[in-house]
Each structure stands twice: as C-alpha cells, then as structure tokens.
Nucleic acid binder design. Structure first.
Length: 493
RNA sequence: GGUCCUAUCGUCUAGAGGCCUAGGACACCGCCCUCUCACGGCGGAGACACGGGUUCGAAUCCCGUUAGGACUACCA
C-alpha cells in the first residue's frame, strides 16, 4: 500500500470573523495533519467578490494563530502549491471549465439572472417536485453558442449533470451516501465574472494541492455528489471526505447564529476565554477519545486524534463546560502568565496604568496565586483585585460591615480591637497575623468568622475575597490600618 | 415541497448483540473542608424518542413513525 503524505486544508471564505464552527473545523484538520505527520494548509476561498470583507482574513489568521493552529502552507507563508488565494488562481479554473465544455461535460449558459428568477418563482408557485435550473441552455447548438459569445452576451459555464443513475459518496464517518442524479441540477462552475463557484474551485484546488482528506461541515453533504461527479469528469481521484456534525444553537434548534450570543473566536477571546480552553472544548464537540479523558491540550490531542472517533450527530453549542475548562486552565497558569493575560482587562478598568511599570507588575504577580482558583473568565479579575490595586477604597456601606444579628457598636468595638492588635504587629506576615487574630477572637469570646468578616469588609469592601491573612499581608500594614480606622469611624454615631 | 443527515441524562458524550441495575464530564442539589468566596473531596437526582420486526437475548441490527437539522444561489 502506498501511503501518500496526508495533506488537509482549512479553506475559509473571508466574509467575516472566524466562526466558532470554522474554528472547530480548522482544529480537527490541524489535529489530523499533526496526528499523521501531514501538512495543514490554509487556503483562502475569496471567489465571491460581493461578500468580500477586507478585515476578515486578518481576523481569521489572527484567531487561528491565537488558537495555536499553525499552517504549513498558506497565503502569508507560501508553499509549493500556491498561490493560496483562489482569486489569484483564476486561469486554472477557466482552463478546467473550458476543458469540460470541450469534452461535452459542461456547457455555456446565457440565461439572465432575471430569467433564472422567473424559473424559480414558477417552480415555487407550481410546488414542483424538483427545483433548480431548467437546463434551458444545455442543448444549445454550437452555432448559437458562438453567435451569442460573439455578441458579447454574458455567460456562465454549467456542469452537465447525468440525467440518470446514482452517485455514491464515501463518507469516512457515515459510510456510503447515495444520491439520485436526477435530483441534481446543472450547477454553475464558472460565473459570468470569470470567477469560479465553490464547487469548481474546491475540486480543482483540492486536486492540484494534492489534498488527501477533506474535513468540512455537515452542510456540504448535499453538494458532495456534485464534487464526486466532477472528479469523475476530470478523471481525478477524489479525496477522502469526512463531514463534521453541525453546531446547533444552545437550545438545539437551528444553526448556531449570532442571535444566540458570541459566534466568533474573537468574541470569546475578548470575553476572557483562554485558547487552551476553547480548543479543549471544541475538541470534544464531536470527538471523543477511547477512554474517558476530557482534559487535553492540543499537543496531546494531536497524538490521539483519529477520524473514527468523530461523531455524526448534530451538536448543541452550550458554553457551561467551556467556562469550566477555562477555570481549569486558568488554575494551571503560572502567576506571571496569568498576570500578563489579565493585564489588559485591569488597564481597561483603570486599575493599572498602560504601560504598566515593572514594580506594579511584580505586585500583580504576587496577587495571582490568591485569585487563580476564583476566576473563570479573565475579566472577573477586576472584582477580585481592585482593592489591592487602589490606594484608597470607598468606606464600605454599613450593612456590609454588619454580620446579621450584630449592632454597629459591637462591630465598631471589634474593628477597634483588631486595629489595636494589628498596629503592634511585627513582622506583618501570614503566620503572625493568623496567630494574633485567632487569639483576639478567643480573647473577645467571638467566633473567628464574627471577627474576620468585618475586617475583611473593612479592608476590601467585599464579602468574598481571598484568604484574609494573605489579603492583609499583600495589602500592607499601612493600608490595612487606615481602612480599619475609616470603617470603625463610619460606625461611630 | 424535494434530496440528504441525525436521534442515549438539561448539555457534551461512552456504548459496535449478552460485560448495562446504561458509564464519564459540565451544569444542578446535598454533605465535608473552611475566616468569606472559590478550589478540592464525597454523595444525589437525571437518558436509551415511539412502534414494529430479527434474535435465546437489542441502547446496539432492519423497517416505519415522529422529531430536529442541513441543503435546495452566477454564497461558501
């Protein structure tokens, strides 16, 4: 058995930001290439000039890189099978389309958009069993074709679909899918602007670029027989097809769309998700290992990934588990790394300057171990560290300061006692603080929580914070005393 | 309408005829840990869409029904 080198591609159309579903397709292709020592190719399907969005490609590439999905050949880095922009490959498509016309496997069609629309309208009105192009130009005599061309009439080239028979598509995940050729219309190969349609460009490029496996979304299944028939018309060997299950909206009804929240990789990045988490989550949306392992970094998944563990049923895109993965990977991050990823959010909240001086960054690093297991999304960092990064905090509202069933006077006395105890304390370290404050609680004959909570609120302004002793140490004696005093005074009538 | 795909806890899934009293994870609930919140640990609730076959035996195979989805452009 001669095993060709595995070559797969991700072929996005630059019509918008990288979609989460596209990211999964890219991930699977990347993993498959890496798992098999193959090549991962990025190809830009920019054949629709009406939908072209200039910023889209930049976003797609940025997002792929952010996810760590690097490509071996592509528009920016080139390769032996370029160019990798379809808009720069027009001569190929024209040549192959003309070839099919010459061989009687395709034909010129001069129908106007208006006529096509009429045909469609009539079919709909008649509730016709079959839809699609009515093959009006399929049997135009050569003389007429020449005349119309000479007149400069715009035309497209259409594929001459076999009128009978069935076409069997081999899907690596679903087995044989068979289609009745009579249900397939004569699709356009080359548009009147000289650009190819997806159907043509795709098969020509996959062949020319020696793509061995095509992993693409489920929605392509209905057009796969067209592609298979084209490969046959050209006399080419088709690649292995594997159609990935569609991503549905969270409620499982309908395709995932913007109506149901974030759909682009960029949005997830901005919301504070880690690429590690997104990859891990996306990996499990349709693929499962032989055992019950669920936590995978992509390098690890690349060793295990295989086509036969991919599912075929549609997948509801629900992000609960993504958030859990995110917390998981955040907890694994070294302090410096976490701090670096949180920095932009803190700067946006004006808790740190931009650029951030080294000493403040160093301080931020020290905070990370305290908050690591408490955040699921990066932006949540602000609520956990704001009181550390501010020199002064507003005096906490009285109701926060008072545990239930306590009076302002009791709490004021507790805070005053804490103030006096801490004032004398040296060194100001966790162990010393813990010993002193536990001792104080005992001495005052209150439960630790009764004493600790008012202190916590007084120095942080919050009821949920990292451990009290860590917090006090990192706040520093001066700020602690100052905030205790302010809180105490706010309770004085 | 036509063609096609899919069908196990709320969600992602394990399951390739007996190992299933259906396993795991997230989410949810309870308990433990505990200075709060988390993290962590332990436990709980929770599913084979329905109906027919085939078989000694079916979540697993076949058929049908139902439901959901995709496609049906000179978009990809």
């Amino acid at each position: 058995m001669t095993s060709k080198q595995v070559r797969v591609r991700f072929a996005p159309s630059p019509t918008g930001f990288l979609h989460i579903g596209g990211a999964r397709t890219a991930l699977y292709n990347w993993l498959f290439a890496r798992a098999n020592g193959g090549k991962f190719i990025l190809r830009v399907e920019d054949t629709d000039r009406t939908r072209f969005v200039p910023e889209a490609l930049e976003d797609i590439m940025t997002s792929l890189r952010w996810l760590g999905l690097d490509w071996d050949e592509g528009p920016d880095c080139g390769g032996d099978f370029g160019p990798y922009y379809q808009s720069q490959r027009l001569p190929y498509y024209q040549q192959y389309a003309e070839q099919l016309v010459r061989e009687g496997k395709a034909y010129y069609c001069f129908c106007t958009p208006e006529r096509l629309q009429e045909v469609r309208a009539k079919q709909e009105a008649a509730k016709a069993a079959t839809f699609g192009y009515d093959r009006h130009c399929r049997d135009l005599d050569p003389a007429t074709v020449e005349r119309l061309k000479a007149e400069g009439r715009p035309y497209v080239i259409r594929f001459k679909m076999p009128l009978t028979g069935t076409t069997v598509v081999q899907d690596a995940l679903r087995g044989e899918l068979s289609f009745d050729n009579s249900t397939l219309d004569d699709h356009v190969l080359l548009k009147s602007d000289g650009f190819p349609t997806y159907h043509l460009a795709n098969t020509v490029d996959d062949h020319l670029m020696q793509i061995t496996h095509v992993m693409r979304a489920d929605e392509w299944i209905p057009s796969t027989p067209r592609h298979v028939l084209q490969y046959q018309a050209f006399g080419w060997e088709p690649p292995v097809f594997a159609h990935l299950p569609v991503l549905l909206s969270p409620d499982g009804k309908g395709k995932l769309s913007k109506r149901h929240g974030a759909t682009s990789v960029r949005e997830y990045r901005e919301q504070g998700y880690l690429p590690e988490a997104l990859n891990n989550f996306l990996l499990l949306l349709g693929w499962h290992p032989a055992d019950d392992q669920e936590v995978f970094r992509i390098e690890e998944a690349a060793k295990l990934f295989s086509l036969d563990r991919i599912n075929t049923s549609p997948v509801a895109f629900q992000t609960d588990k993504l958030a859990w993965f995110n917390g998981l990977y955040i907890r694994e991050l070294p302090a410096e790394d976490l701090a670096r990823r949180c920095l932009p959010y803190l700067q946006k909240a004006e808790l740190l300057p931009d650029p951030c001086p080294p000493e403040r960054l160093a301080y931020l690093n020290r905070l990370m171990p305290l908050v690591r297991e408490r955040i699921k999304l990066l932006p949540e960092i602000t609520d956990w560290v704001d009181f550390f990064l501010q020199e002064e905090i507003p005096v906490p509202p009285v109701e926060l300061l008072l545990p239930k069933k306590t009076t302002p006077d009791e709490v004021r006395r507790l805070l005053a006692a804490a103030y006096d105890t801490l004032k004398e304390l040296a060194p100001f370290t966790e162990v010393v603080l813990e010993e002193a404050l536990r001792g104080l609680a005992e001495q005052l004959n209150v439960k630790t929580g009764q004493l600790f909570m008012p202190i916590r609120v007084a120095v942080t302004g919050r009821t949920a914070t990292p451990g009290l002793f860590d917090t006090l140490v990192l706040l520093g004696k001066d700020r602690v005393l100052c905030r205790l005093k302010a809180a105490e005074e706010s309770l004085t009538v």
